[in-house]
Design a binder for these strands. Structure first.
Lengths: 133, 133
DNA sequence: AATAAAATTGTAATGATTACAAATGTAATT
DNA sequence: AATTACATTTGTAATCATTACAATTTTATT
């Protein structure tokens, strides 16, 4: 499924800018920051504004086509892979690594039937291969 | 175990300010922000500086006596309960609720023997009892 | 007491994010 | 095709949590 299909399916009007951001997220599973996305797209869309990236990602997140990651203290990060997986962040080099081999957490929490769960994020922190001593 | 014991045990020199912050964290399991801690302690320690709260919580986190929570986009939050549990945040009222009935995630991740895991945080998001329709 | 080291404080800088109004683009209607 | 309404984008300015840093105060050491 390409960028256009995803936007249309989620009732997002596919403007040039939105298509470019969606396309970027589908080809860069690097958990990019707003700045990284902007820097990458800016040359090919010279009029692009950083505010548009913020607006677009905010819209995408509301519609569930990207995930917001709060794993990094400094910047918001986004993930175009919305399937269930966790994330690991290296304390030293700040690399963010996907963790796929995880059992899904319960979407209905035992002992908390009163809560409506929309999303679960699991963040591991430690040292990656290169940074551990 | 009281505030003094915890600080001494973790090689943290127990100054007046540090004791006050530790004491606060042991009596307020509300996942407070820096501002909330500062506002609460400021009247009884008139010279207190917000920078000291930042410094102190940063030190506490390094020494493992409090947990940093990245569950709230706006502010850092801290938890004086360092035992294993997850957190839920209501999208509407922003309340943060402890989730205790969770099985611990694997500290050694299957499929990722190269990673050294120091910490795991699980964040649920959704609507609390009062805010669900 | 004098000196050194550590902790605290206040102010200023940083920098990501948001607010907002103007400009542009798109769709609908006559 | 002109007109109107509406949605999107853009640029600038404001916000505000956090950090940097130097000065001051406190605590420990000789």
């Amino acid at each position: 499924m390409d960028a256009l299909d995803i936007l249309v399916k989620h009732d997002i009007k596919p403007s040039l800018q939105r298509l470019a951001v969606m396309e970027y997220m589908l080809t860069h599973f690097t958990h990019p920051t707003v700045d990284e996305i902007f820097s990458s797209l800016s040359p090919s869309i010279p009029t692009l504004s950083k505010t548009t990236i913020y607006n677009t990602l905010s819209l995408f997140e509301e519609q569930g086509v990207v995930l917001y990651l709060g794993i990094d203290k400094k910047n918001a990060r986004f993930d175009g892979n919305t399937s269930h997986h966790a994330h690991f962040r290296c304390k030293n080099c700040n690399a963010i690594i996907d963790i796929f081999n995880q059992k899904p957490e319960d979407v209905v929490l035992e002992g908390h039937p009163e809560l409506v769960i929309d999303d679960v994020q699991t963040y591991y922190t430690g040292y990656c291969k290169n940074c551990k001593k």
